[in-house]
Each structure stands twice: as structure tokens, then as C-alpha cells.
Simulated scan of single mutants.
Amino acid sequence: MIALVLLGVLALVGGGCACVVWAERGGPRWARVVAAVTLGAGELLRRSEKNRRRGLNRPTSDGDQVL
């Protein structure tokens, strides 16, 4: 069951990447929409990971860092 979910996610990611490339070459409107959603999701994931790392490296009140 987990393998099917992972394959589905992989298919969505691959399709999104293909739409990004196709939209750059002047693809149809729906491909540009899918490309924008794909790039937006990637940016959200990048920001959330950056915020998570900052939270781990934030010093505590006594000057020690949380690991």
C-alpha cells in the first residue's frame, strides 16, 4: 500500500517537472498552470525546511543551542 502511495507521489512529481519544462517552451495554458502549482509547492517546501532548520539552531534563553 505504501509503495502505491510513493509511486503516485513520484508520478505527480515527474508530471509536474515535465509540465515545467513544457511550459517554458510555450506549452498549453493547463501546462503553465500545473507548472506554476509545481513551482509554488517546491517553494513552500523549501521555505518550510529553511524555517525548520532555523528553529533547530535558535539559541535558548541561557545561551545554549538546541540540537
Results as ranks from 00 to 15, higher is better:
residue 52 R to Q: 14
residue 51 N to A: 14
residue 35 A to F: 00
residue 51 N to Y: 13
residue 37 V to A: 15
residue 15 G to R: 08
residue 1 M to K: 14
residue 55 G to Y: 05
residue 6 L to R: 13
residue 66 V to L: 12
residue 33 V to C: 02
residue 58 R to M: 09
residue 14 G to D: 02
residue 55 G to A: 12
residue 56 L to R: 14
residue 53 R to D: 09
residue 38 T to F: 09
residue 14 G to T: 03
residue 36 A to M: 09
residue 32 R to W: 01
residue 44 L to A: 15
residue 43 E to P: 00
residue 32 R to M: 04
residue 22 W to D: 03
residue 55 G to H: 07
residue 16 G to M: 03
residue 14 G to A: 07
residue 46 R to A: 10
residue 29 R to T: 08
residue 56 L to G: 11
residue 3 A to M: 14
residue 63 G to K: 10
residue 30 W to S: 01
residue 14 G to C: 06
residue 60 T to W: 08
residue 49 E to V: 08
residue 53 R to I: 03
residue 26 G to H: 06
residue 61 S to F: 10
residue 59 P to S: 03
residue 27 G to K: 06
residue 28 P to L: 01
residue 10 L to N: 09
residue 64 D to Q: 15
residue 20 V to Y: 02
residue 67 L to E: 11
residue 57 N to A: 15
residue 14 G to R: 05
residue 66 V to F: 12
residue 40 G to V: 02
residue 44 L to Q: 12
residue 40 G to L: 04
residue 41 A to M: 13
residue 20 V to A: 00
residue 5 V to P: 01
residue 49 E to H: 10
residue 64 D to H: 14
residue 5 V to Y: 06
residue 62 D to N: 15
residue 61 S to M: 11
residue 56 L to C: 08
residue 66 V to I: 08
residue 66 V to G: 05
residue 44 L to W: 11
residue 4 L to Y: 04
residue 30 W to R: 02
residue 52 R to C: 07
residue 35 A to E: 02
residue 56 L to E: 13
residue 10 L to T: 14
residue 57 N to C: 11
residue 22 W to N: 02
residue 39 L to G: 00
residue 25 R to Q: 10
residue 37 V to P: 06
residue 30 W to Y: 13
residue 28 P to Y: 02
residue 46 R to W: 12
residue 42 G to T: 11
residue 18 A to T: 09
residue 48 S to G: 06
residue 27 G to Y: 01
residue 64 D to K: 14
residue 34 V to N: 02
residue 54 R to D: 08
residue 7 L to F: 07
residue 43 E to W: 07
residue 34 V to S: 01
residue 27 G to D: 06
residue 43 E to N: 03
residue 56 L to A: 04
residue 20 V to R: 00
residue 31 A to R: 03
residue 61 S to C: 11
residue 60 T to V: 10
residue 40 G to Y: 06
residue 4 L to H: 11
residue 24 E to N: 14
residue 41 A to R: 10
residue 56 L to Y: 07
residue 7 L to G: 13
residue 13 V to Y: 04
residue 49 E to P: 00
residue 18 A to Q: 08
residue 65 Q to E: 10
residue 36 A to W: 13
residue 22 W to M: 02
residue 5 V to N: 05
residue 30 W to H: 09
residue 14 G to V: 04
residue 6 L to K: 10
residue 43 E to F: 03
residue 40 G to C: 04
residue 11 A to L: 14
residue 1 M to Q: 13
residue 26 G to A: 08
residue 21 V to N: 05
residue 47 R to M: 02
residue 29 R to E: 09
residue 5 V to T: 08
residue 10 L to V: 12
residue 39 L to V: 10
residue 36 A to G: 11
residue 48 S to D: 11
